[in-house]
Design a protein around this nucleic acid. Structure first.
Length: 459
RNA sequence: GGCGCGGUGGCAGAGUGGUCAUGCGACGGACUGCAACUCCGUUUACGCCGGUUCGAUUCCGACCCGCGCCUCCA
């Protein structure tokens, strides 16, 4: 039984799928006007791990993650760049796929784009207008009337009175109430637009997720996820739209990832302190970044500091060193480690406890290797690969991690020096042997002698 | 101001009403030509004050501190 924390109830609940053995999950993805940053990476990796684990547990997962490819920020950026907005969004979507691929994020089953669902959105807005939940305003916009939905605020636990009274809600004369939000924005001359019963315009941000999730997963589905800052207003508004249009529950479980901070400050677009995935991958192995992200619970806040990836690197180094030189068994028998791993992941996807299991397996693997128990070593390596695979790590050959990016000091040169050193050691010229080792160490190459010979890795 | 989350050992970071987190680091030992890796062992925790309890880091209340959302943001 998988327990997961639902933002709606603010507690862990036993996951009960609508259809036995199946999971429908919708996650709010990117607005594609810029490169993905670490906050995106966190959401991408969190839900990648969650879907991988559901599959590991035998569920048939239908994972939908949308792409917002039309909105004010996109249109503004395209105008600044002097390009068609489609050119911008296509480029950013491609970049996103490259970035998430580097982080080992598997592609969702579907990635619907807002611009492909205009008819569905218009249809839903029409339903909301017909039912009296929405109204066309004098300025040509169509707004959702928040006061018509009694449950408004149930996800974010906000009271409508507070929102209306709050000074930070945009004052917009066309709205009947300050808390109302836009479903359809009328276009000014020359702006990108689509035809609608209310005139030329474009959809508001929230309606796309209501329309696309209904189209891909149905009127009620299992899990809806997203970043922490989407809870309000975005997810709250999605609930209002969908439940008013359909008169049935929208989502059974709401899941939100924790925020990413940078040097103790929230990372955000408005603060301009965000690191893109590309920036980070300039200096760090993508698997290290992924491991860093799963080293904390997906709901907790994490703080990214320039050297916060060092721990993640050490841990992966340890795993890969243990795997090095062992042929992993293909499908080893289930062990108590598997049991412990699943118990951890069943408990709201506790990747931290799960990585502790990885360390336990590694320690056992090292003991077996030391004792020369080839078969047991192979089995343990197989278990380590299997469990790592559920988290999306340890899927490479050890050498590709341990010896990655050697720059101008290539493998042939390193191995040549190792051979020179071997000769020196044979002649008991330890001074020369140490000199070669120090020379390599200065360039970040660590040598490790064992009975079988000398191996090397990046520091 | 409203709503919500959190304060764990040198650091990172889980978790639990009463024997272990885990990793990094430190210390001791084994291994090694010396190292590195690995193994064995040791070490230091639960913001503050009350309450409930045989017993609380874990439950309850107050307090202090930090953070998030309330505005585009994952």
């Amino acid at each position: 039984m998988i327990q997961l924390y639902s933002t709606l109830s603010r507690k862990k609940e036993t996951f009960q799928p609508i259809e036995p053995g199946k999971v429908g999950i919708y996650v709010c993805g990117m607005t594609v006007y810029d490169y993905c940053h670490l906050g995106h990476a966190r959401v991408l990796v969190a839900f990648d791990v969650i879907t991988r684990y559901f599959r590991h547990r035998g569920y048939d997962v239908h994972y939908v993650r949308n792409i917002t490819d039309v909105d004010d920020k996109i249109l503004d950026r395209a105008r600044e760049n002097g390009e068609d907005f489609h050119v911008l969004t296509d480029r950013m979507i491609e970049a996103m796929h490259v970035d998430e691929g580097a982080l080992g994020v598997l592609r969702p089953n579907e990635e619907p784009r807002a611009t492909e669902y205009m008819d569905e959105m218009i249809d839903m807005i029409r339903t909301l207008v017909d039912k009296g939940h929405a109204y066309p305003a004098d300025n040509g916009d169509v707004y959702f009337a928040v006061s018509t939905f009694d449950d408004y605020g149930k996800l974010s636990r906000k009271k409508l009175e507070d929102l209306v009274a709050g000074a930070r809600v945009e004052v917009q004369e066309a709205k009947a109430s300050p808390a109302d939000f836009v479903l359809w924005k009328s276009a000014k001359p020359g702006e990108v637009s689509w035809p609608s019963p209310w005139g030329e315009g474009r959809p508001g941000w929230h309606i796309e997720c209501s329309a696309m999730s209904r189209s891909r997963l149905g009127r009620t589905f299992d899990i809806h996820g997203g970043g922490p800052d989407l809870m309000f207003p975005h997810h709250e508004n999605e609930i209002a739209q969908s439940e008013c249009a359909h008169e049935q529950p929208f989502v059974n479980y709401w899941m939100h990832a924790g925020a990413v901070r940078v040097n103790h400050e929230k990372m955000s677009k408005s603060l301009g302190n965000f690191f893109t995935i590309r920036d980070i991958l300039q200096e760090h192995d993508p698997e290290v970044v992924r491991y860093f992200l799963i080293s904390s619970h997906y709901r907790s806040q994490i703080d990214y500091t320039p050297d916060s990836l060092a721990d993640a690197r050490s841990a992966l180094m340890k795993f890969y060193q243990a795997l090095d030189g062992v042929e992993p068994a293909k499908d080893p028998a289930e062990t108590e480690h598997d049991q412990r791993f699943m118990a951890a992941m069943d408990d709201d996807f506790n990747t931290v406890e799960a990585t502790a299991v990885l360390h336990a397996v590694t320690a056992e693997l090292n003991r077996c290797k030391k004792a020369g128990e080839t078969e047991q070593s192979s089995a343990m390596a197989g278990v380590l690969k299997r469990l790592g695979g559920v988290l999306g790590v340890l899927e490479r050959e050890p050498a590709s991690f341990l010896q990655a990016d050697t720059g101008d000091l290539n493998a042939d040169r390193i191995e040549g020096l190792i051979e020179e050193r071997r000769q020196a050691k044979k002649n008991k010229d330890f001074g020369e042997a140490d000199r070669i080792r120090d020379e390599l160490l200065e360039q970040g190459i660590v040598l490790e002698d064992s009975r079988e010979g000398t191996t090397w890795r990046r520091e």
